[in-house]
């Protein structure tokens, strides 16, 4: 078969060219800005600084703190998300078909906007008349300082984020579960394996590709978290919810430090990329 070389370009060029000017160009410009001092309100434009911004970031305890907060957030959200999503998927897989209409309900939190969801949870977490503390009170538990205690605020954001993501990931797991042939599991049971052993040694390994996907998309979205802490806690109390996303926003739009904000963004991108790559490599070695 004769392959016409140019035949591929009508498919690829429009999309790639578009990305070049809406994504690549701004990213390269931001990369340039990360080596400069640039305050949008200033008239002079960017001033070349070399590696100063990066040097500042690596020695700034605030940046280290924000990275730690972000990492803690990600490493709490992702495993919880997987556990609940998988549990829900297993339940849905075994539940009566009449309940399949409920799947739409599980999706609603993940397709509603982050700002809307944050507003809703701000009401839920309201200390005296919020739904959650009212429910706690009804069963005799004291009011929880959901967002006001520096030891609790990040966990409260984690709970909300997990609530938001479980439905989405559960459906992905569900689809994968339905592709596992019943006779594979049956063979295990014939050999005397318990339900748990069937899950642990047959189902779970077969779900590995899905888990990788959930982990990588989870890394990208949790490490960039901005809207929830910005709307709900403004990064407090005691900076306990100041994620890197919040820090970048402050630098760029409140302090007029666009250069530093760009450098922080690339630092974050490198961290995300490294973690995602690590994950891929681990799988490649395993499989």
């Amino acid at each position: 078969m004769i392959q016409k070389r140019w035949a591929v370009w009508p498919f690829v060029l429009p999309g790639l060219l578009y990305l070049v000017f809406t994504h690549l160009a701004p990213t390269l410009y931001a990369l340039y800005l990360s080596f400069t001092s640039y305050d949008p309100a200033q008239r002079g434009g960017p001033e070349w600084l070399g590696l100063d911004n990066y040097a500042r970031l690596l020695t700034d305890p605030q940046v280290a703190r924000a990275l730690l907060v972000t990492a803690q957030f990600a490493f709490e959200v992702i495993p919880l998300n997987i556990v609940f999503a998988l549990a829900l998927a297993l339940l849905l897989n075994a539940a009566s078909r009449r309940l399949s209409g409920l799947r739409a309900a599980f999706f609603l939190p993940s397709v509603a906007s982050a700002v809307v969801v944050s507003l809703i949870w701000l009401w839920l977490y309201e200390p005296t008349f919020g739904l959650l503390n009212q429910a706690f009170k009804a069963v005799g538990l004291g009011p929880m300082p959901w967002l006001s205690d520096p030891n609790w605020a990040l966990h409260s954001l984690v709970i909300m984020r997990v609530w938001r993501g479980v439905g989405w990931n559960a459906v992905i797991y569900l689809a994968a579960l339905q592709t596992i042939p019943e006779d594979v599991k049956e063979a295990g049971r014939v050999d005397g394996a318990s339900d748990w052993q069937v899950f642990r040694y047959i189902t779970w390994p077969l779900l590995t590709p899905v888990t990788i996907y959930v982990v990588v998309t989870g890394l990208i979205s949790t490490f960039q978290t901005f809207a929830e802490p910005f709307v709900m806690t403004k990064g407090g109390p005691l900076e306990s919810t100041t994620t890197v996303g919040v820090l970048i926003y402050r630098q760029a739009f409140e302090y007029g430090e666009m250069g530093l904000a760009s450098a922080t963004s690339f630092l974050l991108a490198i961290v995300i990329f490294a973690l995602a790559l690590l994950n891929f490599l681990r799988v490649r070695r395993a499989g």
Partner: peptide, 24 residues
């Protein structure tokens, strides 16, 4: 390589690119 570049683009937070794109 091009595909990898497209993916890598997803990892830069948009707070950094929003002003450059605005100027463009």
């Amino acid at each position: 390589q091009l595909f990898l570049a497209v993916l890598a683009g997803m990892m830069v937070p948009n707070q950094a690119t929003v002003i450059p794109l605005f100027i463009i």
